[in-house]
């Protein structure tokens, strides 16, 4: 998560309008999921990949590494779709187990492959968004979509404080290690417990102080801040419409006419 955060702040697409990027990611994602087609998923995977890596400047190797994270889950869950245990063998292969067969059919094989590709393409859409758009910008988009204020404020605070919490945890854990707190399994377990309770106490103290500081700046129960959004560009919008329109037509053609 921290790695993604660093990447998106350094992305070359960071200063593009966040609304454009979100619209592109979400529309493409929807078309991809609804099309149920390997070809469409392949196109989406390629386009978002090229955008994130080439345009955004994320190193190829790291991007591929990030894609393998959901891949592990996907492969495991598709195993269940692929393999069947039946009395009669299916057409792809069959391994006899006593009176039963561990077997798979061509249909279910293609279905599993399609599922893996679609899911991967969907993830790549979200990766495109999260590798190019910092969290505060995404919050701006949600605000424009009239997401409830309370939710927005929570997200704003949580996002900031995840990093403070991690820093604090890191500092405590280092100081524990310096005093041999992780010498063996027993002490490590104990240290971890102490870390948890120390973090809890710090978090409560910090929230009190933060509230004081906000009050000192005339906080009246609503967090209002200015955003620095960049105006959307017509050219980019045209490209998004063009691409997603073409993708939609392609998806419909694959689904119904081929």
């Amino acid at each position: 998560m921290i790695a993604i955060d660093k990447l998106c702040y350094n992305s070359r697409l960071r200063y593009e309008n966040a609304g454009e990027k979100s619209a592109f990611a979400v529309i493409t994602l929807c078309i991809c999921v609804m099309s149920r087609s390997i070809a469409v998923a392949g196109v989406v995977l390629a386009v978002t990949g090229i955008l994130t890596v080439k345009k955004g400047g994320v190193p190829v190797f790291r991007y591929l590494k990030f894609l393998t994270i959901p891949l592990a889950f996907l492969l495991l869950s598709t195993l269940a779709i692929l393999f069947h245990i039946k009395r009669e063998p299916l057409d792809l292969f069959a391994i006899p187990l006593g009176g039963w067969y561990l077997t798979a059919g061509t249909d279910s094989f293609f279905y599993a492959v399609q599922l893996v590709f679609t899911a991967l393409a969907a993830v790549s859409c979200l990766y495109f968004l999260s590798f190019t758009t910092p969290m505060p910008d995404i919050l701006e988009v949600l605000k424009k979509l009239h997401c409830p204020a309370l939710l927005m404020e929570l997200m704003l605070l949580i996002y900031r404080f995840i990093f403070i919490l991690l820093d604090t945890a890191d500092a405590i854990s280092t100081s524990q290690s310096c005093r041999l707190g992780n010498r063996n399994y027993r002490t490590a377990l104990k240290s971890f417990g102490l870390l948890g309770s120390a973090l809890m106490i710090r978090a409560v103290q910090r929230s009190g102080r933060l509230y004081d500081a906000m009050e000192a700046r005339c906080y009246d129960g609503r967090i209002q801040v200015l955003s620095e959004s960049r105006p959307p560009r017509k050219k980019v919008i045209a490209w998004i419409i063009l691409f997603d329109g073409a993708l939609l037509i392609f998806a419909i053609w694959r689904r119904f006419f081929s």
Binding site: P136, L210, A213, I223, L226, E228
Partner: peptide, 11 residues
């Protein structure tokens, strides 16, 4: 860190 609550400097 007790005062800054936004991730963005401008906000």
């Amino acid at each position: 860190d007790n005062q800054l609550f936004c991730a963005s400097v401008y906000q």
